[in-house]
Amino acid sequence: MHNHTSAEITLNINNEDRTVYVRNADTLLYALREKLGLTGAKPGCLNGDCGACTIIVDGDPMKSCLMLAVEAQGKSIITVEGLQNTAIQTEFIDKFAFQCGYCTPGFIMNCHALMTKYPDADDSVIKDWLESNICRCTGYQEIEAAIKAALAAAKGEPG
């Protein structure tokens, strides 16, 4: 019996169109991980609280556990797999801004979107954005150093 509770949809991910069959009830996170093999976005709470599943949708950070896959049609999706050699990735390594690494892709996506949208972000903007993610290993001081160095590097200042 045909039903209307699932559908084949096309998602533009990391500048590629990907066609995937999903339940309407599937979150974008589930589709990315289970249907498309993009496991960089992590499940941490499935409730929009921890930020481990953060990706970038049309330039804004989004918690992919809070978005249905069907809602993402027609949007430009960037996952951590779509980032390479970015300033924020480099600085995360240099500043020891991760330990277990599980929250890292989410933090990096959030930081990357922040840098793109607000290259001049001050402390209060950084705090407003980054308090969306939880890191349980670091003291956040390392992440603070990484985002500030990446912002500086992007502006050509010495980090």
């Binding site: 993009l38 496991t39 951590v80």
Partner: peptide, 18 residues
């Protein structure tokens, strides 16, 4: 630097559910 640093910042590091 951590030996697994690049894997972790690129989302390639695999955890059990991955």
């Amino acid at each position: 630097y951590r030996k697994e640093a690049l894997e972790k910042v690129t989302g390639k590091a695999k955890y059990t559910d991955d």
